[in-house]
Simulated assay, not measured.
Amino acid sequence: MTIRTIVWGENIHEQTNEVVRSIYPDGMHTVIAAALNTDPAITASTATLQEDEHGLPSARLAETDVLLWWGHKDHGAVSDEVVERVAKRVWEGMGLIVLHSGHFSKIFKRLMGTPCALKWREAGERERLWAVNPVHPIAAGLPEHFVLENEEMYGEAFSVPEPLETVFISWFAGGEVFRSGMTWRRGAGNIFYFRPGHETYPTYHDATVQQVLRNAVKWADNPLAPYLAVHDAPNVPVESALEPIVERGPRLHEAGEAGYR
């Protein structure tokens, strides 16, 4: 089976800003999905903020292996119910790739548990991305560094949890540096944050950026069945203990009673 992938786009600036519309007339999400679909191992479709349930109903998420998320102008418009639905699927094993200004998205902050704040400057600076973990699958087939001639600057400190791995570090013409590609695991789900992608620049038309995203989808995919037990908190009876034990002392819960949540 191919890796079933959804590219989620906020799809606001493509409709309201002439510069963005000229670069992405059909939306950034469609350009990203088209780039992913050049790989026969990936089947990518799209969803947007404006659709019912933001295009992410439970049934569709249940059949999704990897979700890419791009948002910027209106993170607050994303339904909390949908955020919890996505988080649940990540814990069960769905991969999540968060792009650029998605660092402030509800879903990324929900899974990181931190402010996810950073420095920034919108000046069309040159960005040089270094593959500091060149043997990582997300860096497969890439040069040791590549340049985006115009990008928005993101600078440290980036208030996210210490990552499992740092794959890319960026340097900007103004002098700042930034951890531009980092991975985490939450439950059974693999998470990758990739920094480039400001909407007023043609970043997602760049062939190297597109290769990073294809690599990231393959890395984030978990081929195992969903780990539904991640949500369970069973009250194990005394008689079911692996070794014989004798109950001692008072208890709060009755045998078999569910715990508090």
Rank of each mutant, 00 (worst) to 15 (best):
T2R: 07
I3H: 00
R4I: 03
T5C: 05
I6L: 12
V7L: 14
W8C: 03
H13D: 02
E14T: 01
N17F: 04
N17I: 11
N17E: 11
E18G: 10
R21Q: 15
I23N: 13
I23W: 13
G27A: 06
V31N: 07
I32A: 05
I32N: 06
A33D: 05
A33L: 05
A35T: 03
L36K: 03
T38V: 02
A41M: 00
T43H: 01
T43N: 04
A44K: 01
A47L: 14
L49E: 11
Q50I: 09
Q50R: 14
L56A: 02
L56Q: 04
S58F: 05
R60N: 01
A62M: 03
A62F: 03
E63T: 07
V66G: 04
G71A: 15
K73M: 15
D80S: 07
E81R: 06
V82T: 04
A87G: 09
R89C: 03
V90W: 10
E92I: 00
G93S: 02
H103A: 13
S105T: 14
S105G: 13
L111M: 09
G113K: 12
G113D: 08
P115H: 12
P115E: 12
C116M: 10
A117E: 15
L118M: 12
K119L: 11
R121L: 07
R121E: 04
E122V: 06
G124F: 13
G124E: 08
R126K: 15
E127C: 14
R128W: 09
W130H: 15
V132E: 11
N133W: 13
H136Q: 14
G141V: 00
E144D: 07
E144H: 08
L148Y: 01
E149H: 02
N150R: 10
N150K: 10
N150W: 00
G155W: 11
G155R: 09
E156P: 13
E156A: 14
A157E: 13
V160H: 10
P161R: 11
E165P: 05
E165I: 10
V167Y: 08
V167R: 08
I169F: 04
S170W: 08
W171S: 14
W171D: 11
G174H: 08
M182G: 09
M182Q: 15
I191P: 04
I191H: 09
F192G: 03
F192I: 04
R195Y: 07
P196R: 10
P196H: 10
P196L: 11
H198S: 01
H198E: 03
E199R: 00
E199W: 00
T200I: 05
T200M: 08
T203W: 06
H205T: 08
D206M: 06
T208G: 05
T208S: 06
V209W: 06
V209R: 04
V209A: 05
L213P: 02
R214D: 03
N215W: 08
A216V: 08
V217I: 13
K218N: 10
A220W: 13
A220Q: 09
D221E: 15
D221R: 15
P223Y: 07
L224M: 15
A225T: 14
V230G: 06
V230I: 15
A233W: 10
P234T: 02
N235L: 02
P237N: 07
V238Q: 12
E239P: 01
A241M: 09
L242M: 04
I245Y: 08
I245E: 08
E247W: 14
E247F: 10
P250A: 13
L252K: 04
L252T: 10
H253W: 07
E254F: 00
A258G: 03
A258E: 03
G259S: 00
R261Y: 11
